[in-house]
């Protein structure tokens, strides 16, 4: 008994030391993980700061006119971003117009119509396709889609709309194959798996009770989808579409292959054009002179701001639907 009493302080001392050591290593690990989390924030702010610094020479030289002038002339060092901005917005907008109805249609097919054994394989195939690198879509667009459009589709459309005012300038020749419409089609097929899988996911959040009660009062499948499922998931679908729009706006390689890289604004959808990302990808390594490089970085800054806003809105919308299903 006395031996135990004699040993107690030593045991207590070693226990205190162990607890202190544990607390110390825990503090280190805590600090390490916290630093890594903060690094994510530093990364994004670092991107913003470096772009602003890199773009400053161009922005201070051209001022606001940088985003309102169309001319892009490396020889006279006069740079304006209007043509790339126009190309970026038009291609993304057309891509969304094509991909959203298709994507929602496929999601309805997968959740309501598809035979059960096929649901998982098709759903998985769609998700796998979302991961295929964009350069694959680009090379397909260049070697398969563009020649097909050039020889078959475009001459037909041009001849059909030839005499119709308005439409004849929208679809004016010559048929190059590459251009705004081809890029938009490639973008559409790229973002299609994306829209489909998000829409399918939010469709799955609709409580079956809601759908069953609609079916119970005699609604058809379409009425249930139109009046119950889509209104219930509206925010989620919008979030998915915005996310896809963010992808489309910033997509580089697929577009670079088929846009034609022409710095001008044309009313025809068949005309070669350029987008912000395609301009940077094509010209950055060949840019000589600080002002040229800086102008390209300024283009990147504009793209960063546009996509940041779109993605922030998209995430906000998706967070709202997450909060609702979590509650």
């Amino acid at each position: 008994m006395s031996a135990v009493q004699e040993a107690l302080p030593a045991i207590r001392g070693s226990r205190d030391a162990t607890v202190r050591r544990f607390a110390f290593t825990d503090a280190i690990f805590h600090g390490l993980t916290r630093a890594a989390a903060i690094l994510v924030l530093v990364l994004l702010s670092g991107v913003a700061i470096s772009l602003i610094v890199g773009a400053w020479p161009a922005l201070s030289t051209f001022g606001f006119s940088f985003i309102t002038t169309e001319s892009w002339n490396p020889v006279t060092e006069k740079f304006g971003a209007l043509a790339p901005i126009y190309g970026t917005i038009i291609t993304s907008a057309i891509a969304i117009l094509i991909a959203v109805p298709l994507g929602i249609g496929i999601a309805i097919f997968l959740t309501e119509l598809c035979p059960r054994p096929l649901r998982r394989p098709i759903g998985m195939a769609v998700e796998l396709l979302a991961g295929i690198p964009s350069i694959i879509y680009g090379i397909w667009g260049l070697f398969v889609l563009a020649p097909f459009l050039q020889t078959t589709v475009q001459p037909f459309i041009i001849s059909v709309f030839h005499g119709i005012p308005g439409l004849n300038s929208l679809f004016a020749g010559p048929p190059y194959g590459i251009g705004l419409l081809t890029s938009a089609m490639i973008l559409a097929i790229m973002i299609l798996p994306f829209i489909t899988s998000i829409t399918k996911d939010v469709f799955d959040t609709v409580p079956s009770v809601l759908k069953e009660s609609a079916y119970g009062i005699g609604c058809t499948t379409w009425e249930v989808t139109r009046r119950v499922v889509i209104p219930y998931t509206r925010i989620g679908i919008m979030g998915g579409v915005m996310l896809a729009l963010g992808r489309a706006l910033g997509e580089t390689m697929a577009v670079t292959f088929v846009i034609g890289n022409a710095h001008r604004i044309s009313t025809s959808l068949f005309a070669p054009a350029t987008t912000i990302s395609a301009t940077i990808a094509n010209e950055f390594t060949e840019a000589v002179g600080d002002l040229y490089t800086s102008s390209l970085v300024a283009l990147g800054l504009i793209l960063f701001i546009i996509t940041f806003l779109i993605l922030a809105i998209a995430r906000y919308m998706l967070m709202r639907i997450d909060a609702r299903t979590g509650a």
Binding site: V40, L43, L44, G46, V47, S50, L51, G54, L243, G246, R247, L249, G250, E251, T252, S277, I280, A281, F284, V297, G300, L303, F304, T307, F308, L311, A312, R315
Partner: peptide, 13 residues
């Protein structure tokens, strides 16, 4: 946002 930011922007950075 970083997850879906255009990768070309990361290249510029």
């Amino acid at each position: 946002i970083l997850l879906s930011a255009p990768s070309i922007i990361i290249g510029l950075f």
